[in-house]
């Protein structure tokens, strides 16, 4: 080995060379001597990501540990996918997104392209997964959000949910996210007198008064999530700052209809 190459650099180089060989072999090109620059770059990014999961002085050992972590996470993500699918409300958009995730997981190659994420699914959770997450970590965050939303939705009857979703139909289709309207109307109901969802148009005036009190949204969420796991409340709390901003204008104008009935 060249004297100018430090042992750590040599170790990293050998790891990359090994990944390149593994890639070429997996594509039926075991004897090839070169590959496209962009492919090499992806292999390198994958390697760096895997190494970052278990940093240490020995690159080979770090890589082996990192890969073991990824494989474990991949198994967990499969379990989570099954759970989300089993608990999801019947909805074409959501099931389509879960099918896309499944297709991605079936083709996932942690030993070559650990960092790759699936194409942006058509169904977005209330809160997007952090953009810096890669590979199965991103998928896990995406599915975990759906799992939390499913637990929230399970607190309502199918009739109530369907009636909440109907409030979006004026926009020309089903809601982009199934939890959003039940959450909005659920928060409103929690601040007003008990009753079924969704809120009626005449409830909105009283709701505007209730929302004007400090800490109203947090209080409403506390009441709404009383029977739900703490993680669900914690997750939904992340939605409140954005909602508070969206409510500002309609509150000033004294008309909450755009937010609750979808004509924003």
């Amino acid at each position: 080995m060249n004297q100018e190459l430090t042992p750590a650099a040599a170790g990293a180089y050998l790891l990359l060379a090994d990944r390149v060989q593994a890639y070429l072999q997996s594509r039926g090109r075991a004897g090839d001597t070169s590959l496209r620059t962009e492919t090499a770059r992806e292999l390198l990014t994958s390697l760096e990501y895997t190494l970052s999961l278990s940093p240490g002085p020995d690159p080979a050992q770090s890589y082996a540990h990192g890969l073991a972590i990824l494989r474990r996470r991949e198994r967990e993500v499969w379990d989570l996918l099954r759970l989300v699918r089993a608990t999801a409300p019947e909805d074409g958009g959501l099931f389509g997104a879960l099918t896309e995730i499944e297709a991605f997981l079936r083709g996932y190659e942690p030993e070559l392209f650990a960092h790759l994420r699936p194409p942006e699914p058509d169904y977005a959770p209330l809160l997007p997964p952090p953009g810096e997450l890669l590979g199965v970590d991103w998928v896990r965050a995406y599915l975990d959000r759906l799992w939390l939303e499913n637990q929230f939705l399970a607190a309502f009857s199918p009739e109530e949910l369907a009636a909440c979703w109907d409030t979006s139909l004026g926009l020309g289709g089903p809601p982009e996210n199934l939890a959003e309207k039940p959450l909005l109307h659920g928060l409103g109901r929690a601040l007003l007198s008990p009753g079924p969802l969704p809120l009626a148009g005449e409830d909105l005036e009283a709701l505007a008064t209730a929302l004007a009190r400090p800490g109203a949204l947090d209080r409403g969420l506390d009441r709404l999530c009383r029977e739900l796991p703490a993680r669900v409340r914690e997750y939904l709390a992340g939605y409140l700052p954005g909602l508070a901003l969206r409510l500002e204008g309609p509150m000033r104008r004294g008309d909450l209809t755009p937010v609750f009935y979808g004509a924003e």
């Binding site: 180089y13 060379a17 390149v20 001597t33 070169s34 590959l35 496209r36 620059t37 962009e38 090499a40």
Partner: peptide, 17 residues
């Protein structure tokens, strides 16, 4: 040559072949 073709070689390369 590699740069122009957008390729990377690790190891001895294609010359010996």
């Amino acid at each position: 040559a590699l740069q122009n073709a957008g390729r990377v070689e690790l190891g001895g390369g294609v010359l010996p072949k």
